[in-house]
Amino acid sequence: MLSTSAGLKALRAAVPVLIAVFLFARAPPPASAQDTALEFAVKATYLYKFAPFVEWPPQTFRSATDAITLCVVGDDPFGAMLDQAVAGQHVGDRPIALRRMPMAVRGASCQIMFIAGSRAQPVADALAAVRGTPVLTVTDRSPESRAKGIVNFVIQDNRVRFEIDNQAAAQDRLVISSKLLSLAVLGRANE
């Protein structure tokens, strides 16, 4: 436990430094393996950080200490990085639970769902599977793609930003904080 905790701390300390390095790298992205690793490390931390800015319908949780479940659907791009980022994190009194699943299933009791897609179930199918249920879907697709989650990661000025489809969120009975909306890249266009 002790070693795990120390590792976590090191990572947490490293993230802003990594971000700073990432931010001030003025050169066009060489799309190296290192860059990709850094990008996914940032996305991994962002995933659970969305939780405080999202309001789920009241019947979603049975008690105030129920965990918020973060599901990774399809081909997992994070690996152990995500486990490390989530480990020990809380949103208020709620712990973060991490679950990986090959396919999106309706009623799988996920509150946040990162849909990577797979051969068996492309992103669009997975999104369709949970549409209408209170799940914050997150995708990592090009902005031009038609099949995107409520939140979609984009790279802007060499930084990890995100789009938010507030209309889709509303259809899924999710309320997203205006603070989060104000940071979204194209969210403003959707309003």
């Binding site: 405080p52 989060l180 940071l183």
Partner: peptide, 14 residues
């Protein structure tokens, strides 16, 4: 309270 999201998501300009 207004700056929380910008801080969390590292949005320096915001």
């Amino acid at each position: 309270s207004t700056v929380s999201a910008a801080l969390v998501f590292d949005d320096r300009p915001a």
